[in-house]
């Protein structure tokens, strides 16, 4: 499934992440998953939220550098080998990944957040293997 991920530029200073969390919390926006990519001086906070348009608007209003990026959510079974299975598929299909992270929904299901270089191509590939990844295939 293709969704909008919200990315925020943050300096490596204490309290920055807290401020973003506070703003989103106050606005009633739920965060399903997030990750921080960091360097020694700055980081990029990437968020999967229930209302990306609203999150974008509010953070922009508060003068954050924020943007939305198309990413793919991939449902997977929550069991050993699931990540390797996904990566095998992408590798064989020649899909290059900029970054990815994951979260688990419950004991049975996990979700990968994938940012491929070519979103459309990756989307098509993953649709094809949807059932395999879900553990519903053969």
């Amino acid at each position: 499934m293709k969704i909008k991920q919200v990315s925020v530029f943050l300096e490596n200073k204490s309290g920055r992440l807290r401020e973003v969390a506070q703003i989103l919390g106050d606005a009633g926006i739920n965060i399903s998953a997030f990750t921080v990519a960091d360097t020694s001086e700055f980081g990029v906070l990437r968020l999967v939220v229930d209302n990306p348009e609203e999150a974008f608007r509010i953070l922009k209003e508060r003068h954050f550098s924020v943007r939305t990026t198309d990413v793919l959510l991939v449902n997977s079974s929550n069991k050993p080998g699931a990540l390797s299975q996904l990566l095998n598929i992408l590798s064989e299909e020649g899909i290059f990944i900029e970054y990815l992270y994951a979260f688990t929904m419950n004991d049975d299901n996990a979700v990968f957040v994938v940012r491929p270089t070519n979103v459309e191509k990756c989307h098509t590939v993953l649709e094809k293997y949807k059932d395999d990844l879900n553990g519903k295939g053969k």
Binding site: D38, V66, R67
Partner: peptide, 13 residues
């Protein structure tokens, strides 16, 4: 880092 600068990829930053 204003919007015109901002990419969410570290390597681009």
């Amino acid at each position: 880092v204003q919007e015109q600068f901002f990419s969410d990829e570290i390597r681009e930053l």
